[in-house]
Design a protein around this nucleic acid. Structure first.
Length: 465
RNA sequence: GGCGGGUUGGCGGAGAGGUUACGCAGCGGAUUGCAAAUCCGUGUAGACCGGUUCGAUUCCGGUACCCGCCUCCA
């Protein structure tokens, strides 16, 4: 069996991964809040953990891996959007409008992530469908003395969990000292966080022992992972920005609710994404969604390749130049592997690269080697483990269905004349015009082969008729 | 202020205490009437200053700069 090593944020070390139960390897990854289209940064954890999912399935068997990724569908931004629609005159109830908004956002999310070649997780629970479990967990935390009710809120008592801050390497006292948050007056301690908060009549809410209200942000992941994966499971993943406070709070909640369990054994965090060297932000004007990129004509497979070329633990810079190079490489590889059937044997060097803390860039380097040496079976099989070169993502690389025969004939005729007259000017200029229109021109002894290149310009081509 | 990540050849980007990463570009060659494409060959770089070592870009300490989190935002 392949030995997988992963950098565990909990210990800050690369450790050998051994599942609790090899017949049910369990991973939980924090999913999106479904209030709008996923931006390009949202795609990074999805791709990173998709590769891990594929690796685990390869090593332990497809049916022995459970991957849960949640949808956060209770959130103030969602409420605000629903309210906006209601204010605009929509006759439906706020609940209906919220449901509509989250449903459509989830559809978008699925479309976009599919376009990037990601497998569907085993389960994708929505927070609103697990409110009962959250209430039960909160009640349990109160009973155990880890939470308290105050002014209609339920708060987690941070001081009751001595390991609080361990994941992110912070001490409660340091954080209070440097805190820039305004402290709600009903908190026992400034770092205490909300498990449950009251809802006014115009906000979605659920009946609870503490009145009508809604859950705080962190409790959903604790409740859903418990419900779907158990009190102890193998891997918990997400972006590094979630390390604090979200994951820290999840740990506090889950460890206090189930003190005899381990909660997540391995914590994996991917670093952030930048755009052309800068943080992506709306104010800098470099903010865009996955859909924006796809609509612009950047294929999902190309996006995926660019993401995989940087190790997940390092900041990744999205640039146009990288996308261009990735497209060129993929086009070449697709041409080479056309019609090749994957026998299923992942080449060892690729597997080893991925097993070594998901070294996707290293795996791509191995693929480059196979391509150079003409080992097309290995190339395709290795790429498959990365979710590349599959039929699902291949449409973009197919040459546009343009019949170039007439151009080839004309060039052939011109060259024939040229050979007789020894005057190549007309033939050469026609050839150069074809190249300028984006056609790849191959003149060999046994004939002329024209093919539509990636940047084919149909207008220019038309002018050559 | 606290915590964390990064700094590698023209560009992108890995691994490894001593031996070629890899890709793109460039350069040289093959091929071609000339090209394009393709193929072959070619790259001693690792922010700075110390330390450990026979030997460090790789380990340790410090400095500088960049980035992120601590606040809704992956």
């Amino acid at each position: 069996m392949t030995e997988i090593r992963l950098t565990n944020t909990k210990t800050r070390k690369k450790e050998v991964f051994a599942p609790i139960d090899p017949e049910n390897v369990r991973m939980y990854v924090c999913g999106p809040t479904v209030y709008d289209r996923a931006h390009i940064g949202n795609a990074r954890p999805v791709i990173v953990f998709d590769v891990l999912f594929r690796l685990l399935r390869h090593v332990y068997g497809e049916e022995y891996v459970t991957y849960v990724r949640n949808f956060t569908d209770v959130d103030d931004k969602i409420n605000a959007e629903a309210q906006r629609r209601k204010d605009a005159g929509d006759p439906r109830t706020l609940e209906e409008l919220i449901r509509e908004r989250t449903d459509e956002t989830i559809r978008w999310y699925h479309d976009d992530m599919n376009a990037l070649g990601n497998l569907a997780p085993t389960q994708e629970p929505r927070a609103t469908e697990y409110v009962g479990q959250m209430i039960a967990m909160i009640a349990d935390l109160i009973r155990r003395g880890h939470a308290y009710e105050k002014a209609g809120h339920v708060l987690f008592r941070v001081r009751s969990y001595e390991a609080y801050g361990k994941l992110s390497g912070r001490s409660v006292d340091d954080m209070i000292a440097g805190a820039r948050v305004e402290v709600a007056p009903f908190k026992e301690d400034p770092m205490d966080f909300v498990l449950w908060k009251p809802s006014t009549d115009d906000l979605p809410g659920w009946e609870s022992p503490w009145g009508r209200g809604r859950p705080g942000w962190h409790i959903e992941c604790s409740a859903m992972s418990r419900e779907l994966l158990g009190e102890s499971f193998d891997i918990h993943g997400g972006g590094i920005d979630l390390q604090f406070p979200h994951h820290e709070n999840e740990i506090a909640q889950s460890m206090c609710a189930h003190p005899d369990a381990d909660f997540a054994r391995f914590w994996l965090h991917n670093e952030m994404l930048q755009v052309e060297g800068k943080k992506m932000s709306k104010s800098l004007g470099n903010f865009f969604t996955v859909r924006d990129l796809l609509d612009k004509g950047v294929p999902g497979e190309v996006i995926r390749f660019v993401f995989l070329s940087t190790h997940y633990s390092k900041p990744m810079d999205w640039t146009e130049e990288k996308a261009k190079q990735a497209a060129r490489t993929l086009r070449k590889w697709r041409e080479m592997t056309e019609g090749v059937n994957v026998a299923g044997n992942v080449p060892l060097p690729v597997l080893q690269a991925l097993a070594d803390d998901l070294n996707t860039a290293g795996a791509l380097a191995e693929l480059h080697g196979f391509a150079r040496d003409g080992q097309v079976d290995e190339l395709k099989a290795g790429a498959a483990l990365l979710g590349l070169l599959g039929d699902n993502l291949g449409a973009w690389a197919k040459a546009p269905g343009i019949v170039l025969d007439a151009f080839a004939e004309r060039l052939g005729a011109l060259r024939e004349t040229a050979r007789e007259t020894k005057d190549y000017v007309a033939a050469d200029s026609y050839r150069d015009a074809l190249i300028a229109a984006g056609v790849s021109v191959s003149i060999a002894k046994d004939g002329i082969v024209l093919a539509a290149g990636p940047d084919i310009d149909l207008a220019k081509l038309k002018a050559l008729k």
